[in-house]
Simulated scan of single mutants.
Amino acid sequence: MTKNNKQATKRNRYSVLASFYNFSINTGFPALTNPCNSSVIRKIFKRPQAIQWNIVGKETVDEIIFRTTTQRNRLILELMARGGMRIGEVLNLTPADNQERSLAIQKPKSGRTGETVYVSRKILVT
């Protein structure tokens, strides 16, 4: 069942099988034992350690924005850092999207029909 499959597929199948046994035990077969609960099998299908991301600090982001020489690139970085916008959302902005204290995103990646991003007036003026 797991021959020639990646380790992630094997872990997924182990998880589904263990869940099936637990469901069977909890719903009507309390005498049944879960063969997936052995320590050897759990070690084989153990999930890998999560990767710890290095997050850039606010001071570093401010320094990058400050050192950017072109106004266009500085505005893109400001909108991404201060407004939490994605690069595609920033590049699709038009002057009509500029509202009094916010920007209207027409086709956000979230799947909604539209979103509003509130940014400082300093960014909207530039």
Rank of each mutant, 00 (worst) to 15 (best):
K107P: 01
G114F: 14
T33I: 12
L79Q: 04
A50F: 09
F66G: 07
R47E: 15
L17E: 05
K109H: 07
I44T: 13
K43M: 14
T9E: 02
G83S: 09
V61C: 04
L103F: 05
Q49E: 12
Y118N: 07
K58E: 14
F23N: 06
N26I: 04
L32R: 09
T2N: 15
V40P: 00
Q99T: 09
I44N: 01
D97V: 02
M80C: 12
A104W: 11
R47A: 15
K6Y: 01
R67T: 15
E59Q: 10
I51N: 09
N5E: 15
A31N: 12
R13E: 07
I105S: 01
L77C: 03
R74H: 06
G84N: 09
Q71W: 08
F66C: 11
I123K: 02
Y118H: 13
T69V: 14
V117M: 01
T126D: 04
A18S: 15
I44R: 04
S120F: 00
E59K: 11
R13F: 03
G114D: 13
L103N: 01
I87W: 09
A50G: 10
R101V: 06
R86K: 12
R112S: 13
E89K: 01
K58T: 13
D97Q: 02
T9D: 03
K58A: 13
I44V: 15
G114P: 00
Q7T: 05
K10I: 14
I44E: 09
L79S: 05
L17C: 07
T116M: 10
A31K: 08
N12Y: 15
C36G: 08
R42Q: 15
Y14C: 00
M85Y: 05
Y21T: 02
C36A: 09
K43D: 09
R121Y: 07
D97H: 07
E78K: 03
R86L: 06
L103T: 00
I25M: 04
G111A: 11
V56F: 06
K58Y: 10
T68Y: 02
L79P: 00
Y14T: 03
Q71N: 08
P95Y: 05
E59C: 03
I51Q: 12
Q99W: 04
E115N: 08
V125F: 05
G83Q: 06
N92G: 05
G84E: 11
N37G: 03
V119I: 13
N26A: 11
R72E: 09
E59P: 01
V125Q: 08
K10R: 13
N73D: 14
K6L: 11
V56K: 07
S24I: 10
P108E: 13
L75N: 05
T126W: 01
E89Y: 02
F66K: 14
L124Y: 01
G28C: 06
K107V: 09
R82Q: 10
R72D: 06
K109A: 06
R11L: 01
R42I: 10
R11G: 00
F29R: 11
N12H: 14
L32Q: 12
N4E: 10
Q49A: 14
L77N: 01
M1Q: 07
L93K: 01
I44P: 00
P30V: 04
R11F: 02
N98F: 07
F66S: 15
P48M: 05
K107C: 08
S19C: 05
